[in-house]
């Protein structure tokens, strides 16, 4: 029994340590801070309900169609959403300050399966204080921002998917 406890302690400790030290390129661990609210509607006019899935990590992504890295990254995010559909990760995609027409025509061409929230006046985005666009935040199930992803990334890269899976699995273990 004692050996089992020691083994469990070591594995829990090492998994946490691994998550900290082996971060994929562009992901930064930050001092946790509460994620600002997102009282926004999506493209279908449905209100986003924060903490609808309180047991899940959230992948919160801010973008605009005029930003080059955002345009390049969006198809890869669509594929990531599909690849992680069975994982306990909630995707919250937020367009910053563009008209519905612009958003519809852009997403229709590059990522038609994505239903983005519309931050019509850009104020919700401001509250998150992104470093630039695109910006992605990883928010833990208690609503704390734990990681910031700088710039656009290739989410098809298995390193990122493994990292995200590890987060959700560790969360399940800790519950």
């Amino acid at each position: 029994m004692r050996k089992l406890i020691i083994f469990l302690l070591i594995s829990v400790f090492s998994s946490g340590l691994l998550a900290e030290s082996n971060l994929p390129k562009g992901i930064i661990k930050v001092t946790p801070r509460p994620a600002p609210t997102l009282n926004l509607e999506n493209m279908d006019g449905e209100k986003y309900t924060p903490y609808k899935n309180p047991s899940r990590w959230r992948f919160v992504h801010f973008w605009a169609s005029w930003c080059g890295p955002c345009r390049r990254e969006m198809p890869s995010i669509q594929k990531l959403i599909k690849a992680m559909s069975k994982d306990k990760l909630e995707f919250v995609i937020v367009n910053t300050a563009e008209s519905e027409d612009t958003v519809f025509s852009f997403l229709g061409g590059v990522a038609p399966d994505i239903n983005t929230l519309l931050d019509r006046d850009g104020l919700a985005t401001e509250r998150w204080r992104p470093r630039g666009l695109p910006s992605t935040y990883l928010v833990d199930p208690s609503g704390q921002i734990q990681y910031v992803v700088i710039g656009g990334q290739d989410w098809q890269n298995s390193q990122y998917q493994q990292f995200l899976r590890k987060l959700t699995i560790n969360n399940d273990k800790n519950r």
Partner: peptide, 28 residues
């Protein structure tokens, strides 16, 4: 000027201050 245009304009500017992390690229 409507808030959404102010916001877009602001995002097209280079931030005046920023800590660039290793391999980070930003522009404006």
């Amino acid at each position: 000027l409507a808030q959404r245009f102010q916001s877009t304009f602001r995002w097209t500017l280079l931030p005046e201050q920023l800590d660039f992390h290793p391999d980070e690229r930003e522009g404006g």
